[in-house]
Computed example of a mutant assay.
Amino acid sequence: MTARMTARFADLKRQNRAGLVTFITAGDPDDRTSAAVLRALPEAGADVIELGMPFTDPMADGPTIQAAALRALKAGHRLSKTLAMVRDFRAGDDATPIVLMGYYNPIYVYGVDRFLADAKAAGVDGLIVVDLPPEEDRELCIPALEAGLNFIRLATPTTDDARLPAVLQNTSGFVYYVSVNGITGSAIPDYSRVASSVQRIKRHTDLPIAVGFGVKTPEGAAEVAAHADAVVVGTALIDVLARSLDAGHATPTTVDAVRGFVEGLARGVRSAKRPAPAAQEDRP
C-alpha cells in the first residue's frame, strides 16, 4: 500500500471501525464546485475518496454516474484537470487517500507512463480501472505498482474461489467487493450475505475489504460497516448532488447538500456494532 493508504487503514483498525469511502465524479458539475465538494468530503467524515475520471462511455455505471460524467465533460473537464484537482487538494490535505476510478481509454490516450508519473506527483494513491481484467495486468496494473500506486481490483458475487486468486494476484490497497451484480446504483444489496462474502474473500487475502454498490442510507452503511473494512457510497451521493443543481448547474446549496449527506453516512458507519478485536497474545 501507499503510505497514506497504509496509515488510514491502520488507524481504522485501531479504532475498530469501518472506513467510509465516498465517490464523486471529477469536474461535476463544474471544476470549481467539484473542487469544493472534494475538500468538504474529509471534513464531513470520508476516510478515503474515489475520484471518478469522466469518460464518454462508462459501461459499468448506471444513469446517475453516467449523467455526472457527461456534465463534467460538457463543462470542459479532462483527465489533466482531474490530476490538477488532486494536486490542489493535497495543498490542504496530505492524509486522505485518493483513488482515481474509471476506464482505460482516457489513460491510454493520455499516455500510460506520463499518466502514472503525473498521478504520483499529484498525490494520487491508487487506481481502479474497471475494464482491465487481470489478464491485461501488463497494460497498466504492473506499471502502476512499479510507479508506487495501488491497483485496486473489483470482486463480485460471481467471482468464485477459483477466480479469486487471479483477481487478487496484483491487487494492493484494498479489495472492492461489488455486493450486487450489474451496473452502479442498480439494486439494494442483500446485507445478510455481506458478512459471508467478506469472510470468503478474507480467506484469500489480508487486504482490507471495502463493500459498495447499492448503499444509499446511513442505516445501510451501518449494516455493511458491521462486517466490512470500509463502505463505499457513490450513486446515492451523486444523486444528492444532482438534486441540488439547477438545469445542470451548481447552486448555493450544492456543496452543503453533499456535506450533510456524507455526515449522515459517517455517523451510520461509526454507529455499526462490530465484533471486539481479537486479544493480542502476551509476548515476553
Rank of each mutant, 00 (worst) to 15 (best):
A195M: 04
I188K: 15
I142P: 05
A210C: 10
D61G: 09
E146S: 12
T33P: 00
A7I: 09
P106K: 05
S186N: 13
V178W: 04
I238K: 06
I209Q: 04
A230I: 04
A272R: 00
R283E: 15
V21C: 15
L12P: 07
P58A: 08
M5N: 03
A247K: 13
S271F: 07
I201N: 06
K120D: 04
D282N: 14
L116F: 01
V269S: 07
L207Q: 06
A147C: 06
V130D: 04
R90E: 12
I152Q: 07
D229C: 05
R274P: 12
A250Y: 00
L168Y: 07
I98V: 15
P218I: 04
T253I: 01
A222D: 00
L265W: 06
L100T: 01
F174I: 08
G62H: 10
K216N: 14
P208R: 09
R153V: 12
V269M: 06
A195W: 01
D125N: 08
L83E: 01
L140M: 07
H204S: 11
L145S: 03
T6A: 13
M53T: 06
R193C: 11
R39H: 14
D137F: 13
F89C: 05
F115W: 04
L83K: 03
S179F: 03
Y104V: 04
A166F: 12
R78S: 13
R153Y: 09
V215M: 11
T25Y: 12
S196I: 06
A44L: 10
A221G: 11
R193A: 14
G185A: 12
R274N: 11
Y110W: 03
R243M: 08
S34R: 01
L245H: 00
A75H: 03
A36R: 14
Q15T: 10
T217P: 00
D88R: 06
R270V: 06
K81E: 14
L20D: 07
T158M: 11
L12E: 08
V48E: 07
G27W: 03
I49V: 12
Y191N: 07
V233F: 01
R8W: 11
D282A: 14
V231M: 05
V262D: 09
A166C: 10
G27K: 02
L83M: 06
R203H: 12
P54S: 12
A250N: 01
F55R: 11
P275M: 09
G148R: 10
P252N: 02
V129Q: 00
D61W: 09
T25C: 14
G212T: 06
A221I: 05
P208C: 05
S197F: 02
L154M: 11
L265C: 10
P275N: 11
A84L: 12
G212L: 07
T205S: 09
E43R: 14
T6P: 09
L245A: 00
V167Q: 08
G248I: 00
G92C: 12
R270A: 14
P157R: 04
E136W: 08
A228L: 03
T251M: 00
I107L: 14
V178C: 08
T184I: 03
Y176W: 08
L79G: 02
E139N: 15
T6E: 14
K13P: 10
A84H: 13
